[in-house]
Structures are given as structure tokens and as C-alpha cells.
Design a protein around this nucleic acid. Structure first.
Lengths: 161, 161
DNA sequence: ACATATAGTTGCGTATTACAACTATTGAGA
DNA sequence: TCTCAATAGTTGTAATACGCAACTATATGT
């Protein structure tokens, strides 16, 4: 692979293009996957948040997924009534609910993760070790970059004009 | 940072983690941006499809965005009635509509693109030339990988089990 | 003790989307 | 030429996802 001349603005413009393609196709995949295990896509992300964290609260889930707490509340309650997550009152603050996956929730989460990992394994199949590592690094970097921007600006590209 | 995925350490597992973070944060950003220029997020993607292509049809837009043609139809008609896109009957086949951006549509599209490019420019700011090129390559590779999977399988992770 | 802040819920409106049924047009074969 | 299948696009309908605002219950600080 040869190095292209880097013209200022060009990389960013290509990234714009490439990212928007990537997002659309992943959103499609996620919509399409909605059926599995009786979880919606959003519930799946919420279950992930609960399973990856420790003693998560509804607000923690909202923050992790960049959602309003009302949306997080509904997602979590869906997971609870479907038996994927259990809640427990926090003794020291009775406003708070401590969430954890049920055994079934944990099992389903593992199954979904494994399926994704298999898929990504295939996707990375053509790359050598360094290439694979680079992909992971890049995606992490982008994610952190966006997260930092979101946290800094609180949002809204359209400042008053 | 918090706990790692279920099969820690493997590239595919880390990619699962990193990509799901990236997707959530970008979806948040897109929701948040919805206000600008009187376009919804989806309309914005549709305008992009019309502007980037030549003489696009409604079906072309649907294919480009991985949407049902009914959804594409409504998006496009929204763009038309808001004056961002114009339609013209195809002379050789009067079922099809040929779409193109209006001058206003083109202007708004440019403005949005420039805003994104500025944002990505910042995001890439910390990287050297080769790093920037690598990011673009990676995102392209991922996008193509997903697109290939989607086209191959027609979708649905959950085959009957 | 009272004002204020925080966790979570609920009511409500909007956006995004798919599926299925429909119209209009095209094109191929009997 | 007539008919029938395929295709482009539209419309009816319903589900999901989401935010904002108002609300309850609990906690904390002055």
C-alpha cells in the first residue's frame, strides 16, 4: 500500500463519507437482528450495559447509552418483565435501583456476544495481527473522540446563527 | 473503563465492544443534530444519496440507505416538498422518477458536509498523516465488510434454531 | 424544617421504519 | 394484439425508539 499525498481536508472528507456508509449499514444490520432472543436492539444494548457494569442504576444505563433516563427506565423495565434483569433496592438510598442480569439474562447476553464475536472474527479474517489490532485501535479512538466531543459540547451542532 | 467482554483479549471481542460504543455515540450525535437546516437525520442521509448520485430514483435511494422503498419514498417526498430535491419523469420509463438536488438542496448539503468535515478534521487532529489515512482505510474496510455480509445473507442472524 | 436536588416513572408527542396492498407502467410471449 | 408478470412508486397501518415535561418518593444541606 502506497502513501497518497495528504491534502488538508481530504482525509476528513473521506472519513465523512466512509463513516456515514458504515453507520447506515450497521443500523440496517441492527434493525434486521431485532428478532433474536426476544430482545429488541435497544434492549440488547441496555442488557449489555447492565451486564458489563456492576450494580448499575437506571441512570447509569441512560448515561452509558446516551439516552434520556425515561427511555432507559422503559428499556430496563422491559428487560425486568421479560426476566433478563433483576432489580434490588439500594439499602443506603432507597431512590436507587441496583440492576443485575438474571442467569437467563447473562446466558442470552453471552450468546449474543458470541454471535457478534463470530461475525467480527470473519470480518477481521483477511487481516494480519497488526492489521487487526489497528482496526480495534482505530474504532476505539473514534469512539473516544466522539464521546469527548459530546461531553464537551453537550451537543447541538447548530449554534445560533 | 469498566469490565471487559465475555471473551476478553481477542481482537474480535474488543471490536465488538469498541464498535458498539462507537455506534451508540454516533447515533446520539445524529439525534442531537436533527434540528439543523430543517432536515431530519434520515432526510439528511437521503439528501446525501441524491446529491452524491446522478439522476437517482427512489429505489436507488432505498438501496443506498438500506431502507424499504416505502420509507425512501416518504423521505424523498419530504425533501421535495421542502424544496431540497426536484423530481423529473424519466422519458423512457414513466414509472421512474429522476431525482436531483435543487440549488437550495445543494447548498444545504454542502453546508452540512463542511460542518462534518470540520468536526472530523478536529477528530483526526492528533494523528500524523499515516494515522489519518489508516483511520479512513479502516472505516472503509469495515463498511465494505458489513455491506458484503448484508448482501450475502439478506440478513437475519437468527436462523431457525 | 424547609428548600433543593436526585432517582426513577409516566404521559404524550414525534420520528423512523417495515410490511402489505395498491396504482401505473413496462415488456414478453401466446 | 392481448394478456400477464414484473417493476417503480405510493399509501395505509402498526411497532419501536426516543425526548421532554410533569410527577412521586427519597435524600441532603442550611
Amino acid at each position: 500500500m502506497h502513501t497518497r499525498p495528504i491534502i488538508p481536508g481530504t482525509d476528513a472528507a473521506e472519513l465523512t463519507e466512509a463513516l456515514s456508509d458504515l453507520i447506515r449499514v450497521i443500523q440496517f444490520r441492527d434493525r434486521d437482528r431485532a428478532c433474536c432472543y426476544g430482545l429488541s436492539v435497544s434492549q440488547c444494548y441496555a442488557l449489555k450495559a447492565v451486564a458489563d457494569g456492576e450494580q448499575m442504576t437506571v441512570n447509569d444505563v441512560a448515561a452509558a447509552l446516551y439516552l434520556d433516563k425515561s427511555t432507559a427506565s422503559r428499556l430496563v423495565n422491559g428487560l425486568i418483565s421479560d426476566g433478563f434483569v433483576s432489580k434490588e433496592a439500594d439499602e443506603s438510598d432507597r431512590r436507587v435501583l441496583r440492576l443485575s442480569p438474571t442467569p437467563r439474562g447473562r446466558a442470552v447476553y453471552s450468546a449474543i456476544q458470541e454471535e457478534l464475536v463470530r461475525e467480527y472474527e470473519e470480518l477481521l479474517g483477511g487481516l494480519d495481527d497488526e492489521g487487526r489490532a489497528a482496526v480495534v485501535r482505530t474504532v476505539r479512538t473514534l469512539g473516544r473522540g466522539f464521546a469527548a466531543r459530546v461531553e464537551a459540547s453537550g451537543g447541538s451542532c447548530c449554534v445560533v446563527r
